[in-house]
Design a protein around this nucleic acid. Structure first.
Lengths: 211, 211, 211, 211
DNA sequence: TCGTAAACGAGACGGTACGTCCTGTCTTAAC
DNA sequence: GTTAAGACAGGACGTACCGTCTCGTTTACGA
């Protein structure tokens, strides 16, 4: 994606040429990303117009194209910026709490932050279009999988979960239901998260201790 | 959606007027839906062009707009046609088999039929746009929830599942993982389906017999 | 123009076949011509829509196409119907009166009857399009030229006009000014007509008496 | 007509804002007017398609609409550009020569330049549609009337024409016959022009000197 | 402090698609 | 066999954006 000379930056690659001419404005970078986020939320990806982004950011179209080569690249930038803060699962010593964090992280992001409408707007592109999907899967999704895997291992080590608890589908079972409801309807409440986690916990529980 | 006079038809409402003028062609109805499906698959919703649908179907644009008022209505028609055959869960007497059917139905539809790329193309619209989302949730999603609920009840009656097995999140646990992988990557194999079902089954199992 | 079987008729050629099926309605013929005339007047030729003619006449489009093959043919029919009554110059024995009749005929048709707006609407087609222009010139224009020529001859015979009064441009001098004002503005009053006729009369007057 | 912001320009109003953004191309202005002229000549006003103008000029449709808001405005621009060179009547000292110039100017424009087919294409619009008619009458027609009036006055001053020669219908008598033949057929030769002028001259001649 | 080069807003530009309208043909049921 | 109604392919309408391209102006750096 970064083939063209100096895309997506004020922060150009480190050892780069001693840039001449007027440097790109950080303020504009922000204004563009903010405008793009708002319009993704209100219009969706199919209805996003770079001309409107430019107008709302008070910017010429060329200023956008200088940084991102397409609607897809710009949308990805918006998405990644919003996704990163909701990945980490804090180690608390309580297995149920940690698995609940996996589900609640996703749910809060989707429910209480602009990440929700933005990812809703981009679901189809992520599913169909490698330009968006591949980078998103490589960073955000893989990050979340890793966090969940670690939480499961910790649960096994503590003796709360069976030794053969199925790490490979744990993320799907804990987070899949949240996205299912995002798309297909249903409440996204703490109660829902707890029911999901309790079912998974029981499915993965150590045979003796139970929970 | 069906407000305008006689949209979406050769099949006009039953007790309708004794239609005057030349009747709409069933052949063209099919040609349009086929063309729309192919282009949804290859271009996605954002890239779908009614002008291309018309060209591929060998039809004037007006012939499309006479039946469906927008890209959204047409896409919904394509989607519902593809979704309906993958809902029913046959009663087999074997609880694991029946729950597996819930997951496998979704997975086969997504993996082996045009429903897969079509719903991928429409996920964002379903999530964001009530024009598509509401009818889809009312018919397809509700249909699937009902089937799963009945399968769970049968499992309880048979003594395979706990009496308080959580019906309200069963669909999310059984089908959510499939859509999670559709969007966010991962194999969609029979093995994956069985792992999901086994986890849920264990989570919902009767405390004594289990399985 | 009349190649297709039985265009432009209820009045079919006399010795024609003993027409089978439902006969064409004279009432519809009238309704179509009336509607076409009204719309020519209000919308002009470029803005005339056969669909609107059909709607206003309470008629199917095919019923129009069965009788006239095109917008041009239909417009010509409207025009010729309106033009015919304003051609004849009555022989009164008074040369000035007769020449004035030539100018006043044209002026009254243009000013006081639907012929005015209709021919305004069709001037360009008459000038450019032989399909309309040729039949119109052959019937209406030639008819008027003949009437003027006869009036000039009578004036010469009476001794009011010079023997070599220029018959070939008399129609142009007497009627041309009326059409000039129709297109390019200016009052079309009896006074105007008399000034034109007086100038021509003086130009053509017998050198002795004249008047 | 010129209400919208900066229509019909590279030549923007003189004291205008210090134009921002990329300026409009004179080359394209020309290409559009040329293409429009050619298509008006071959297809007439009713058959003129802005899409074809754009294609022939190698231009997007928006580039046309940016300058002229409609087929009518564009056609008017074409017409006025062609009309202007054929108005002036040179003062020669010879009254017959000057009146002949009035008729010959119109005839040559109509016969030997693209103005002929273009005005034929626009006669109906000029007659019916104030959007075209009013500006055309105000500039071209009024210009011609003024020239003829001055020529008549000079003839009177020279004693060639009667003092009460009818200035108000002179243009109609000298130029009307040319347009009559343009629409309704007949040769447009120098001989025709001379016959017309001679008739008018005799009609307006001073009673004593004659000519 | 000055020159130079890139960034910037504005908006023109060739295209493509929109959703609507109309043309001329056709198909149906009713008369 | 004519009629009203209306479906149909095709194509133009005028508008809106795309992504690229000039313009004139601004901003920072290195000379």
């Amino acid at each position: 994606m970064q083939d063209a000379p100096f895309r997506n930056s004020p922060a150009r690659p480190a050892g780069s040429a001693p840039r001449r001419g007027r440097p790109r404005s950080d303020r504009l970078q922000r204004a563009i990303l903010d405008a793009a986020r708002e319009l993704l939320v209100s219009e969706g990806f199919a209805g996003l117009r770079l001309e409107h982004v430019a107008a709302r950011a008070g910017v010429g179209k060329a200023t956008i194209y200088r940084r991102w080569g397409s609607k897809e690249e710009l949308s990805l930038a918006v998405l990644e910026e919003l996704a990163s803060p909701h990945i980490v699962i804090a180690e608390t010593g309580n297995t149920r709490q940690e698995l609940l964090a996996a589900t609640m992280n996703a749910m809060r992001a989707v429910n209480d932050t602009p990440f929700g409408p933005v990812i809703a707007a981009l679901l189809s592109q992520i599913a169909m279009n490698p330009l968006l999907g591949d980078p998103f899967r490589a960073s955000v999704v893989q990050g979340r999988r890793d966090e969940v895997r670690r939480a499961i291992w910790r649960g096994i080590r503590r003796g709360d979960l069976r030794a053969d608890a199925d790490v490979d589908v744990a993320t799907e079972l804990l987070v899949g239901p949240v996205y299912f409801r995002l798309m297909f309807g249903g409440e996204l409440t703490r109660d829902f998260a707890e029911r999901v986690v309790d079912a998974v916990l029981r499915g993965y529980a150590a045979p003796d201790g139970g929970r």
